Simulated scan of single mutants.
Amino acid sequence: MNPLPALARALGTQPWVMKLAKVVVWVDHRLHRVFRGRVSLVGIAGLPSLRLTATGRKSGLPRSHNLLYFPYRDGFVLVGSNWGRPQNPAWTINLRANPEATIEVRGKEIPVRATLVEGEGYDELWRRVVKFWPGYEMERVAAGRELPIFLLTPETATRNVDE
């Protein structure tokens, strides 16, 4: 059994870890580039990670971010924690403006549709993601805001439901 996920979850609840955000993001981008999406810091820690590419709300250009995700049903859950900063991360604003995006998981590209989770669904999913990644509660308190939660559904699953 891999001890790294438990270690990562324990470290993720330490306030000093949020101060390392810029370094972690920089290293993770370099790993993604060198290993063509097959290696990430989150992945090394034994946790699920993906690379989200969404359309920039203002620029219209593709914007990519490496993120921890929570596997849920046939989709992917993302939490807009922004490392405990008071403002939402840019990718959340971009997904609200245009919910069509692409994710890369273990080198495989998947078109997805993002849905902002609200109401009772939010409360239920929040309990699940905090159990999965306890650091989200610390980041919510530090940010002083409700952290947005998005459910990303693969486009093929969305089409099948709509048809």
Rank of each mutant, 00 (worst) to 15 (best):
A8K: 02
L152H: 14
F132C: 03
L68P: 02
V23K: 09
P86V: 08
E139W: 09
Y69C: 02
P71Q: 08
L67W: 10
E139Y: 12
G121W: 09
H29N: 15
G135S: 13
G12H: 06
T115K: 14
A142Y: 06
R145P: 08
V23H: 13
V77G: 04
V39Y: 00
V17E: 03
S49C: 02
M138H: 13
N98D: 08
V77R: 03
R140M: 07
R85Y: 02
L125Y: 03
S64Y: 06
V25K: 04
G46M: 12
T115S: 14
V34F: 14
A10M: 13
E100K: 13
A6P: 02
D74M: 10
G107A: 10
W26F: 15
G107V: 04
L147Q: 07
R73H: 11
P111C: 05
A142R: 12
A90D: 06
V39H: 01
H29G: 12
L50E: 05
G43K: 02
Q14K: 10
L4S: 00
V112Q: 08
L4T: 07
M138S: 14
V17L: 15
K108H: 08
P3H: 00
P5I: 01
A21F: 09
D28T: 08
V141C: 07
E120W: 07
H65R: 09
L147R: 02
A143N: 05
Q14M: 12
D74H: 13
Q87N: 10
R57G: 00
L152V: 15
G84D: 06
N82V: 05
N160V: 10
R30W: 09
V161G: 01
I149W: 07
V105G: 02
W16F: 14
N94Y: 07
K108Q: 10
Q87G: 01
L151T: 11
V161E: 06
I93R: 09
L20Y: 14
V129G: 09
R57M: 06
V42N: 00
T102L: 15
E146W: 02
H32K: 15
A6C: 08
S81A: 11
V23M: 10
